[in-house]
Design a protein around this nucleic acid. Structure first.
Length: 562
RNA sequence: UGGUCCGUGGUGUAACUGGCAACACGUCUGAUUUUGGUUCAGAAGAGUCCAGGUUCGAAACCUGGCGGACCAACCA
């Protein structure tokens, strides 16, 4: 090895534990160095940010090692599943940037094969039909400290079991009357090895196979077989399946199938939100949010509507990495990732969220001039546009203070400020109503201070945004805050809904520069000095609606807090 | 109290498998700035759950504790 030019660079790129396994496998020529991963969602709910990072993980690994990635719907429980979820999951996965060509599979694609393989196990005396009730099965399994005891059906002959299983399949038994069990190890300290159920009877319609089947395989049986059939080399799942791995390996070994390897990682949690499908569903059904795609939801559809980019989510997945220990990632990291992406691509526009009117007394009445505003200082190719300026404008209410604290460099009586891309103004007079509310500011402008042609020589500390009263358009703007008031709602005592943030949605009517009239759903904007926004799908031809994706970093707000 | 897995700054991951702990977010300074944004420069913050042991040398290996998560659905 020759010495590296950059001696400070690590000798090796730092790898996560799964990459370590993969590289070891490649080095050893396992599967001829081929890598094949998959994402196996059950179509019984919408994808959330946790699923998204898992997709990034699995797809990313395949892409990195020139392998393949499959999307596979784990549809073994038709009672819980629905085609609606299949469609949304596929759409979200695609949006995230995963590619699987024609390799969109369903566990149900393999029902025939699974049925045949079950018969092989029965024939070899490794599986049996058990007519015990669910309670009996549970009871006979024993406890973690006490071994299980054999059911009286455990010794039925293979021939008889074969016939029984066929009758199960033919619908001759009632739902719940019997199950097919694998003969593993009743005395194992691992409960999942105590003759786990392979098939149960469910006389229900399946969204893919219709009414073809009335018996459906359990996860423990279906998953290794699906992986194996597809030639999945690295089957990545979450930690709670760790104890299932011996069963996973048992089936593949006993059936002599392609040895897919299961690898478990710790699911990643996020502060101030919840990830459990059950809880998410409650938020929707109980009306705490407006739907699965409510911009406050951690669902992929929610994040999309909120204005998050696939880029940002991929970057997030990358940054938080993957490991086996418990973790809670600060949402701040996610927010950092969107800001980072949006900063590069968002068009800068001006919009006043909470207005206060300013009259520029020495500016000609009825005059309108167009000032040039750059679309994005981070992108020289983005150009600029013309924005109308006139005698009466709106500025942000908190850009004015009657009695400003130290270091406040916005507008105040006698103070001077630059209007972004326009003139420098001085506040001469504060107009109040009978109730002492400030209703208007009277200012004067410096005529030769216009941006780009400033010969005034004046230096001002503050620059604020504005919008011309006569030209402003109005829009509904929805500001969002964290959905919960505590960092880890599911860890708190009591029902998680009591920790919902009552102020997670704040709706207001804003005044925006006229160019926003033509905003499209795919557009990304930065409302200067405020945050990143996108058009919401609730928009109608005469009612614009904008969502705040995330606010800008606000070091003044931090300063004020001190 | 049976089994499995896990314990590294506030948070998330690293440390090339034994050579006195790095990166990112966050925090704090300062500079630049017609966005209190961006960018740039810098700082503080862990001695790796604890105690022993092996070793010239341990975050890593061994032993024993402690702490946490998961497992007894005809869910996945």
């Amino acid at each position: 090895m020759k010495n590296n030019e950059n001696t400070n660079a690590p000798a090796h790129e730092s790898l996560n534990f799964i990459e370590l396994i993969i590289e070891e496998d490649i080095k050893n020529g396992k599967h001829n160095g081929h890598i094949h991963t998959r994402f196996p969602p059950e179509p019984n709910g919408y994808l959330h940010i946790g699923h998204a990072t898992s997709i990034c993980l699995n797809y990313g690994l395949a892409a990195k090692y020139n392998g393949l990635f499959n999307l596979r719907f784990d549809d073994t429980n038709p009672e819980a599943e629905d085609i609606e979820y299949v469609d949304s999951i596929r759409d979200d996965a695609q949006w995230l940037g995963a590619k699987w060509d024609d390799r969109e599979f369903y566990a149900s694609d393999y029902f025939d094969k699974m049925y045949e393989l079950a018969k092989v196990l029965i024939t070899e005396g490794k599986a049996y039909v058990d007519f015990s009730t669910a309670e009996e099965v549970a009871h006979l399994k024993g406890t973690p400290t006490q071994p299980g005891t054999p059911s009286k059906y455990r010794s039925t002959s293979p021939t008889e079991n074969l016939a029984l299983f066929e009758r199960m399949r033919n619908g001759e038994f009632d739902q719940g009357q019997c199950v097919l069990r694998a003969k593993m190890d009743l005395s194992s300290p691992n409960m999942h090895l105590r003759d786990p159920i392979m098939y149960r009877i469910k006389k229900v319609h399946h969204h893919q196979t219709g009414d073809k089947w009335c018996i459906y395989p359990m996860y423990d049986y279906a998953h290794p077989i699906s992986d194996s059939i597809e030639g999945i080399t690295h089957s990545i799942c979450t930690l709670e399946f760790e104890v299932h791995r011996p069963a996973y390996e048992w089936y593949l070994r006993e059936l002599n199938m392609f040895p897919s390897r299961q690898i478990e990682f710790a699911r990643r949690n996020l502060t101030y939100t919840i990830m459990s499908k059950r809880y998410l569903k409650r938020l929707v059904t109980e009306g705490h949010v407006k739907g699965w795609d409510d911009p406050r939801m951690p669902t992929v559809v929610g994040l999309r509507r909120r204005g998050y980019t696939a880029n940002a989510i991929r970057e997030f997945a990358d940054r938080i990495g993957v490991a086996k220990r418990e973790n809670v990632t600060d949402v701040g990291v996610l927010e950092f990732c969107v800001r980072e992406d949006l900063n590069k691509i968002a068009t800068r526009v001006m919009g006043v969220l909470e207005p206060i009117k300013v009259v520029i007394t020495n500016y000609p009445e009825g005059k309108t001039e167009m000032v040039s505003v750059e679309n994005n200082p981070e992108d020289e190719t983005s150009g600029s546009r013309e924005v109308p300026f006139s005698r009466e404008i709106y500025i942000e209410r908190d850009d004015f203070m009657e009695n400003p604290p130290k270091k406040y460099f916005r507008l105040y009586p006698g103070g001077t400020v630059r209007l972004k891309s326009a003139y420098i103004i001085t506040c001469d007079e504060v107009i109040k109503d009978a109730a002492d509310n400030i209703v208007e500011l009277r200012c004067s402008y410096i005529e030769n201070s216009r941006s780009g042609a400033d010969t005034s020589g004046l230096k001002v500390k503050g620059t604020i945004h504005w919008v011309s009263v006569a030209h402003a358009i109005t829009a509904e703007v929805r500001l969002y805050d964290r959905l919960f008031t505590v960092e880890y709602p599911s860890n708190e005592d009591g029902d998680f809904v009591q920790y919902l943030n009552p102020n997670s949605l704040h709706t207001l009517t804003a005044y925006l520069e006229p160019s926003l009239q033509n905003a499209q759903l795919a557009d990304r904007f930065q409302f200067i000095r405020k945050g990143y926004f996108c058009l919401d799908k609730d928009t109608t031809p005469n009612h614009l609606v904008f969502n705040q994706t995330v606010g800008l970093k606000d070091s003044w707000a931090k300063e004020v807090k001190k």
